[in-house]
Amino acid sequence: MSAQDSSLTSPFDPAEVVWQPVSPRLVTVRLIPLAIVLGVPLVAGAVAAVLSGIAGLWVVPAVFLLLGVWAAVLVPRQVHAIGYAERDDDLLIRRGVAFRNLVVVPYGRMQFVDVHAGPLDRWAGVAAVQLHTASAASDAAIPGLPPAEAARLRDRLAARGEARLAGL
């Protein structure tokens, strides 16, 4: 298995590519909504179990607790797996732990660039940059960038896209 490992990771690690990580604050941004979604039924389940005194009801909070622990382990790994790299002619974005994904977007193919940040994102000081090509399939988003870096990337991408502009 370990002998195979080097060849297995390689397609997502092209040679001479330096991956830029995204902000670890994205972990917080992603865990807070999850904590709310899982925490409310957890507490409700626990209260119901205590009040009713039925031991079997403890299954409900236990399930949500397990889900929460799983998310707490998975989300940091997912955020850690997100990376992007600016090459001379294209932008590389990779993500995913179990289902891995790498997108190569040529600058000349970009139609427009979005930067967006929700209230939670703004509180944590992160923003997402999304590249749009003429294809709906190219899902090229970089979440969890510091706002200054997001703005820099947006301008940089727009400038490079302009320089390498092509038709459809």
């Binding site: 297995l8 397609p11 997502f12 179990a98 790498l102 090509t133 294809s135 090229a140």
Partner: peptide
Amino acid sequence: RTQSIGLRQGPLQRRLGLA
């Protein structure tokens, strides 16, 4: 006419060394 290129690998593919 290629817009962008994607590479994807699920857990099973990873185990088999496929993408």
